[in-house]
Design a protein around this nucleic acid. Structure first.
Lengths: 332, 332
DNA sequence: ACATTTAATGTAAGCCCTTACATTTTTGAC
DNA sequence: GTCAAAAATGTAAGGGCTTACATTAAATGT
C-alpha cells in the first residue's frame, strides 16, 4: 500500500496525496477529507525512508549519554524523549560510555543516521580533556545543531544548558561555614565541566570565608556508597565536620562512614548530596541534597532546539539555578 | 558526496560501490581496497534513507518501555542498547508511560519507523488487562518480531524472556516460614504479569507450609519508600513478622516503617526487596534483595532476536532463574 | 590454444516519496 | 458573460541506494 494506491483509490494524483499527508494548505478541505478517509480505511502510512530521502530528514534527534543506567541521566533521557515526542520527533539513543574515544565513535555513528539535531546529556570534560571534547562536539555541530545538557563549550552551532553548579555550591559552602563548619570535605566523581564548576564554587566560598583550601579535603572517587565509605574509613587521620558531594551516592557513602565511625549526623558532620535522587530519601537519616532541576534543564534544551530548528535565534548558553533541599543530614 | 561520485572517482560502477559498502563477496579484494580508500578520503557515508528504501530496513530496533527513569528499566535499556549496537543495530526509544492507550499509541508510532524488531521492556498486564495487551502486542508481531522482557503472552511472533519470579518468590517465602516467620506481608506495586507471578509464588508457598493466605497481608502501593512507610504506619492493627516486596523501593519503605515503629530489623521483622538495586545497599540496614539478573534477561532477548532476524527458530518462552542476595535485613 | 566455467563488473529498473513547475479549475470584479 | 488572478490539482524530475540480469574478464580443463 503506497502513495500510488491511495492516489488511485481517491482518484487524485500522488502529489495531492503527498500534500494531504503533509497537511499542505494548497489542497481543498474537501479533497483532504476524502483522501484522509481513504488513507484510514487502508491503514496507509507513508514510508519513512522515502520520506526521509525526499525531505532529507526523518524528524529524529539523536541522544548521546554516557550511561542511561545512571539515575540522573535516565531521568533526563526520559523527560527529553517524552518532550521531543510531543513535537513529533523520535529519539535514537546512544549510550556511549565515558571514554573519550567511545564518545567520538558515538557521534560519528549517530550522525550517519541523518538526525535533525543532537543532544548530549551529561557533561563534557573539563580541564585537560576540554580541548578534545570541543573537537568532536564541534565536528557534530558542523552537521546539525548540538545541545549540551550540563556541559559547556563555546562553539558555533552548540547550545548549552546548564544548572548553576558554581553558584549553588558557593552558597551551600557559605551556609556551612556560617553554621560554624570549618573543615568541609569535597567529594567528587568525575572531571566533567559540571564537577569542575562545583569545585570552583566550593573553593571560592572557602576563600571568601577565610578558610584554607586543603587539597586533602578534595577526594575523587567514582564508585558510590560502599566504596566511598571504605575509602573514608581508610583515611584515619582525615578530619572533617561537613561533606559536600557532587552526587547523592557519594554523600550516602559519607553517611555510612559516619554511622560506622559512631559519629552522629548532622551533629558531628553535616552531609549534603547532589541531584536529589531517590537515594536521598532512602538514606538514613534522609539526605539533604541539591536539586539541579533536571527537568527544567531538559525543557529549556528542547525549547531551544525547536527554536533553532525553526530558524529562530537562540542564546548559546543558558543557566538554570539549582535549589537546596533540606532534609536531615544538615542542621542549618 | 554520493555513490555516483565515489563510483566516478574509483572508476567503477555504482553497483560495485554498493557492493563494497555491503561487503559483498562478489567484489575482488583489490577493487574493494581501492574503493574503500576513496570512500575514506572523501568521508563518504551512504545515505541511510536511500539505503532503507532499497533494503526496507534501517538496522534499527524499537524499544518501548513505560519509563526509563525507573532504575530497573534504565538498566535494561542501557544493556540492550549497548548490546544491539555491537550487532550494528540502532535503537529508537519510546517511553510509553504505563497507561494502556499510551502503549497502544507507542506501538503504532514506532511501527511506522519500519523497525526491524520491537523490544518491550517491562511487563504486560496480567489478569483483566491481559487480553487487551495481547491485542496490541499481537498487532505489532504481525509486522516485526516482538520480544518481551519480563512479560508473557502466547502469540505467534512474540518471544518472551522472563525471570522466574514465581520460583524465587516461592523459595523465599518457604525460607522465611522455615525460619519461623508466620505472618508475611506481600508488598506489590503493579498488576503486571511479573507481579502476578510473584504473588502466585508467595501464596503457594504459604499454602504448602500450612499457613493461611490473608488478603489483608497483600498490600498494593505503587509509590515507593515514604508512601509505603506512611501507609504501613496508618494500618495500626496490622501485624507481620516479615515482608517480601516486588521492588526494593517498597521494601525500603518497610524498613523505614520498622525504624519509626521502633522495631528492629531483622530480629522483629525480616524484609526482602526485589531487583537488587542501588537502593538496597543505600538502605540502613542494607537490604536483602532478589536479583532478577536483568542483564542475563536482556542478553537472552538480544541473542534470540539475532537468531530470529537471521531466520533461525527460537523458543517462544525462556525463563531465567533469579537469585537471593543476602544482606542485613534477613536472619536466615 | 580454445571451449567452458566461474568470478568480476556493469546496466538499468525499481523503492516511495517531495516539490518545482505546468496546467486546469474556481472565484470575483467589472 | 469576460477576463484576470487565485486556488487546486497534475506532471515529471529527482533523491541515493539495492539487486536481478546482462555482460565482460579471468581461470580452469583438455
Amino acid at each position: 500500500m503506497n502513495i500510488y494506491d491511495i492516489a488511485e483509490l481517491a482518484g487524485v494524483s500522488i502529489a495531492t496525496v503527498s500534500r494531504v499527508v503533509n497537511d499542505s494548505p494548497k489542497v481543498s478541505e474537501k479533497t483532504k477529507a476524502r483522501v484522509r478517509a481513504i488513507m484510514e480505511e487502508n491503514h496507509y502510512t507513508p514510508n519513512v525512508f522515502a520520506r526521509g530521502l525526499g525531505l532529507n530528514s526523518m524528524k529524529t534527534v539523536g541522544i548521546i549519554c554516557p550511561d542511561v543506567s545512571d539515575d540522573y541521566m535516565a531521568g533526563s533521557v526520559a523527560y527529553l524523549e517524552k518532550s521531543l515526542r510531543t513535537y513529533g520527533y523520535d529519539c535514537i539513543l546512544y549510550c556511549s560510555g565515558y571514554q573519550y574515544q567511545d564518545k567520538v565513535n558515538a557521534v560519528e555513528l549517530i550522525l550517519q543516521k541523518r538526525i535533525d539535531a543532537l543532544l548530549l546529556v551529561g557533561s563534557n570534560y573539563a580541564g585537560d580533556g576540554e580541548e578534545a571534547s570541543t573537537k568532536y562536539i564541534a565536528r557534530a555541530a558542523r552537521e546539525v545543531p548540538v545541545f549540551l545538557i550540563n556541559g559547556y563549550i563555546h562553539c558555533k552551532g552548540v547550545y548549552c544548558v546548564l544548572s548553576d553548579n558554581y553558584q549553588i555550591m558557593y552558597d551551600t559552602v557559605c551556609a556551612l561555614t556560617e553554621a560554624g563548619r570549618k573543615r568541609i570535605l569535597f567529594l567528587y566523581d568525575s572531571n566533567s565541566y559540571s564537577a569542575a564548576e562545583k569545585m570552583r564554587g566550593y573553593e571560592e566560598a572557602l576563600r571568601d570565608n577565610d578558610l584554607p583550601v586543603r587539597k586533602e579535603l578534595e577526594i575523587f572517587e567514582e564508585n558510590k556508597i560502599l566504596k566511598v565509605r571504605d575509602r573514608l574509613l581508610e583515611q584515619e587521620d582525615l578530619e572533617f565536620d561537613a561533606v559536600v558531594a557532587t552526587d547523592d551516592g557519594l554523600a550516602v557513602g559519607a553517611v555510612k562512614y559516619a554511622r560506622q565511625k559512631g559519629l552522629s549526623v548532622p551533629e558531628d558532620i553535616n552531609i549534603i548530596g547532589f541531584n536529589n535522587s531517590e537515594l536521598a530519601v532512602c538514606c538514613e537519616p534522609e539526605l539533604s541534597s541539591i536539586d539541579s532541576r533536571s527537568e527544567m534543564l531538559c525543557k529549556t534544551a528542547v525549547d531551544s532546539m525547536m527554536m533553532v530548528l525553526n530558524g529562530h535565534p537562540v542564546r548559546h548558553k543558558k543557566t538554570i539555578p539549582c535549589c537546596f533541599v533540606k532534609r536531615r543530614t544538615t542542621n542549618f
